[in-house]
Simulated scan of single mutants.
Amino acid sequence: MKLNWFTRKGIIYWPASIAGWVILVLATAFAIYSFIDIDSRSHSVSDTLTNFVFNLLLIGLVYTIVGYFTEARRKGD
């Protein structure tokens, strides 16, 4: 079964279907929630950003993996 949820434009995976858009919105919402949660427990700006960057990298990694396995590939690929 071939899933065509994303298309690749350079190094970014853009949503190509409703499922792709849902995944993008969920990833963005989780990143915002994660930032607010970390910020509420942090004591400084650097503490917030240091902890948030790690979470943002993990969210980006999962999004990229999902995009890689569900992208619409061209005929020659």
Rank of each mutant, 00 (worst) to 15 (best):
G20F: 08
N4S: 13
V45Q: 10
D47C: 06
F30W: 04
E71S: 09
A27W: 04
W14M: 15
K75T: 02
L56F: 09
I38Y: 09
V25Y: 12
F35H: 05
R73H: 10
F6G: 00
G76T: 12
G67R: 01
L24Q: 02
R41T: 06
V45G: 09
R41D: 14
W21P: 02
W21M: 09
I23A: 08
N51I: 00
S40R: 05
T64D: 12
I32E: 07
M1I: 05
Y33N: 02
R73N: 06
I65N: 03
K9M: 03
L26N: 06
R8K: 12
I18F: 09
G60Y: 10
S46F: 07
V45F: 13
W5A: 03
I23S: 01
N4P: 10
V25F: 12
N4D: 15
V66D: 10
F30Q: 01
T48A: 15
A31H: 03
D47Q: 13
D39T: 03
L3P: 01
L57P: 00
D47L: 11
Y63F: 10
W21R: 09
L61M: 09
G10A: 08
N51V: 02
S34P: 00
K75D: 10
A16H: 12
T64L: 14
Y33I: 00
Y13R: 02
K2A: 11
L57E: 04
V62Q: 10
I18L: 12
V53C: 12
F6D: 03
S42D: 02
G67C: 08
G76R: 14
G67I: 03
T7M: 14
T28I: 01
P15Y: 10
A16D: 13
N51S: 08
V45W: 11
I23L: 06
K9G: 04
F35Y: 07
V66N: 01
T50F: 15
V66A: 04
N55T: 04
F30Y: 08
V22D: 06
Y63D: 04
P15H: 05
L24R: 02
I12S: 13
S40N: 04
E71T: 04
V66L: 14
D77F: 09
P15M: 12
R74F: 06
S46V: 03
D39V: 07
F52Q: 11
R41S: 14
R74D: 09
Y63W: 05
V45N: 08
I12Q: 12
P15W: 07
S44Q: 07
S34K: 01
W5Q: 00
N55G: 05
D77I: 02
W5L: 05
F35C: 03
N55W: 13
T28N: 07
L58Q: 12
M1T: 04
P15Q: 10
L3I: 01
L56E: 15
I32C: 04
T70W: 11
F69W: 13
T7P: 10
V22L: 09
K9S: 08
F52Y: 15
V53W: 15
P15I: 14
R74C: 04
L56G: 06
D39S: 11
G10M: 07
F30R: 01
T28A: 11
W5N: 00
W14F: 15
A16I: 00
A16T: 01
E71L: 11
G10Q: 08
I11N: 04
G20T: 01
W5S: 00
R73T: 03
T48Q: 14
L3Q: 06
I18R: 04
S17A: 13
